[in-house]
Simulated scan of single mutants.
Amino acid sequence: MSAQNKDRLLAQAVALREQGHPEQARERLLALTAAFPDAADVAYQTAWVHDVLGLEAEAVPYYERSLQGDGLAEEERRGALLGLGSTYRVLGRFGQAVETLRLGVAEFPDDGALRTFLAMALFNTGEHHEAMRLLLCLLAASSGDPHVQQYRAAIEHYATDLTQIM
Results as ranks from 00 to 15, higher is better:
51 D>G: 11
80 A>Q: 00
64 E>L: 10
63 Y>R: 06
62 Y>R: 09
75 E>D: 15
51 D>F: 09
49 V>R: 11
46 T>P: 02
62 Y>M: 09
83 G>Y: 03
79 G>A: 09
58 E>N: 09
51 D>T: 14
62 Y>C: 06
71 G>C: 10
68 Q>T: 14
48 W>V: 13
55 L>Q: 15
60 V>S: 02
63 Y>K: 06
84 L>N: 00
59 A>D: 07
57 A>M: 05
86 S>Q: 09
70 D>E: 14
84 L>C: 02
47 A>S: 03
83 G>Q: 01
68 Q>K: 15
82 L>V: 03
82 L>F: 03
82 L>S: 01
68 Q>G: 14
54 G>I: 08
64 E>W: 04
63 Y>F: 12
72 L>S: 10
84 L>I: 01
77 R>Y: 05
75 E>Q: 15
64 E>V: 12
70 D>Q: 14
50 H>E: 07
65 R>T: 11
49 V>Q: 12
48 W>S: 12
59 A>C: 09
66 S>W: 08
56 E>K: 14
47 A>F: 01
49 V>S: 12
78 R>A: 04
53 L>G: 13
52 V>R: 12
72 L>A: 11
62 Y>L: 06
83 G>I: 02
62 Y>H: 15
50 H>C: 02
50 H>W: 03
79 G>H: 08
49 V>W: 13
80 A>E: 01
69 G>F: 05
68 Q>C: 12
66 S>L: 09
67 L>R: 02
56 E>Y: 14
69 G>P: 00
85 G>L: 01
77 R>D: 06
72 L>K: 11
64 E>N: 06
68 Q>S: 14
81 L>N: 00
65 R>L: 10
67 L>I: 04
63 Y>A: 05
84 L>P: 00
67 L>E: 01
55 L>H: 15
71 G>Q: 11
78 R>S: 05
49 V>M: 13
77 R>K: 12
70 D>F: 07
84 L>H: 00
57 A>P: 04
59 A>P: 06
47 A>W: 01
48 W>P: 04
56 E>F: 13
55 L>D: 14
49 V>L: 12
83 G>W: 02
81 L>P: 02
55 L>I: 08
57 A>V: 07
64 E>A: 13
47 A>G: 04
47 A>M: 01
86 S>R: 07
86 S>L: 04
78 R>W: 04
78 R>Q: 09
80 A>P: 02
73 A>I: 06
82 L>I: 04
72 L>E: 10
53 L>R: 13
79 G>P: 08
86 S>M: 05
59 A>L: 08
64 E>C: 06
48 W>F: 13
80 A>C: 03
67 L>H: 04
48 W>N: 13
58 E>M: 08
74 E>W: 10
72 L>T: 10
